[in-house]
Design a protein around this nucleic acid. Structure first.
Length: 348
RNA sequence: UCCGCGGUAGCUCAAUGGUGGAGCAAGAAGCUGUUAACUUCGAGGUUGUAGGUUCGAGUCCUACCCGCGGAG
């Protein structure tokens, strides 16, 4: 499949690294070009908080601001609010109601209120090529009633996002249906429903009824034990029309990705390659290795024998291990280059 | 040579005479639409040496060894 965007065509399957704060940590965009990365994900909420969407708009949008002219997808901020509420422990001030999400900027304690309309306004200001609707993700322990409510809310918010998107782009619903990414940004809906088949089905059907350019797998795709929820993961892909992009948000490990590709998912982003690299874990065809471990002290081989990345072409496991252990920035960069290259290869 | 201060985990340091702890390092594990170069976990000791006082000594006493500072 080829996806038209305002910054060029994208071929699927497609891997997009996460530049959440406007940067792939430890790398720059020329590194991404050299690795062969064709699109990135950046985050509405983070850029809204700092340096603000209006600032970025003033500097010509994310492409000009970043110095990256390939397609950029923006995440809506829904998952970040979910993270603030579910992972912080101190969730004071962070909550979701029918109209949006209240949250406190962890950096300075300032209060904010993110609505579906606001999320779209921010993404338009940022100059995104592919926008994401604001959704209501849940953790794996949520019961049926809570997930049902999340689906209703996500549909309701998706409708508001679509309306705001049409308004800001000065489009009628018919014009939206008859145009593509060559003349306007794209906007994707997010299927929720947790681990419940009927709710996933309901969510997908309601979003398709509203009409989006692509559809995403929302929430987490694995169980509390870390196993992929195969039935839900496959069902959700099947619910999405085959002529639309199917974006598995946050997926995943190399084996998760392999499975997802079989199920028909064709767009991916994940934090794993870059985060794991910074934490000293490197991906190889034989599996993940913890390079900082003692067993690699005298290992003069490249990280992965047949790898063609810059790191493997020039440096040994022992050397990259040394750099990581002394917390030298170059170590983070070399490790990140390798892991991103490894993930990108999964889609060729 | 004399005087003073100090010697406790690999390192830097805690511990009223009452079960010797912490940070870092080292070892390992975990990370899935990034609050994450992060988090978690165990392991690590003849308290410089040899005596003494005491029911009990890292702690008090004596001698010695080593380090630092001062005086000469």
């Amino acid at each position: 499949m080829t996806i038209e965007t305002l910054h060029g065509k994208l071929n699927t399957p497609l891997f997009m690294p996460d530049a959440t704060y406007g940067a792939i940590k430890s790398l720059d965009f020329t590194d991404l070009d050299n690795i062969g990365i064709n699109a990135i994900v950046t985050n509405t909420l983070h850029l809204y908080l700092n340096p603000t969407d209006t600032y970025i708009k003033q500097l010509g949008g994310v492409h000009n601001f970043f110095g990256w002219q390939k397609p950029i997808l923006t995440d809506s901020g829904g998952f970040q609010v979910y993270s603030l509420i579910n992972r912080s422990g101190k969730s004071l001030g962070n909550s979701i109601d029918e109209n949006g999400a209240h949250f406190i900027d962890p950096a300075n304690g300032n209060k904010h209120y993110l609505t579906p309309e606001k999320s779209i306004q921010i993404q338009i200001n940022l100059g995104s090529d592919i926008l994401t609707v604001l959704d209501d993700p849940l953790d794996l322990t949520a019961d049926y009633e809570r997930v049902k409510k999340s689906v209703e809310r996500t549909t309701n918010w998706a409708r508001k996002c679509k309306d705001e998107f049409l308004r800001l782009n000065n489009l009628t619903s018919e014009q939206f249906d008859n145009t593509n990414g060559t003349t306007r940004p794209l906007i994707f809906g997010v299927v929720q429903g947790g681990k419940f088949e009927d709710l996933r089905t309901q969510s997908a059907q309601e979003l398709i009824e509203i009409g989006f350019d692509g559809y995403n797998f929302g929430g987490l795709h694995y169980t509390e034990k870390g196993n992929v929820m195969k039935n839900i993961f496959k069902l959700t892909a099947d619910l999405i029309p085959d002529d639309k992009p199917k974006y598995a948000m946050g997926v995943g490990t190399p084996s998760d990705i392999k499975l997802a590709l079989e199920y028909g998912w064709n767009m991916f982003d994940t934090v794993l390659p870059t985060r794991m690299a910074r934490h000293g874990a490197l991906y190889t065809k034989q599996g993940e290795i913890k390079l900082t471990n003692k067993q690699y002290e005298f290992d003069t081989n490249p990280i992965d024998k047949d790898c063609t990345c810059l790191t493997c072409q020039n440096y040994s496991r022992a050397y990259v291990r040394h750099l990581l252990r002394i917390k030298e920035q170059t170590g983070l960069r070399l490790a990140s280059i390798h892991n991103l290259h490894f993930f990108n290869q999964l889609f060729l």
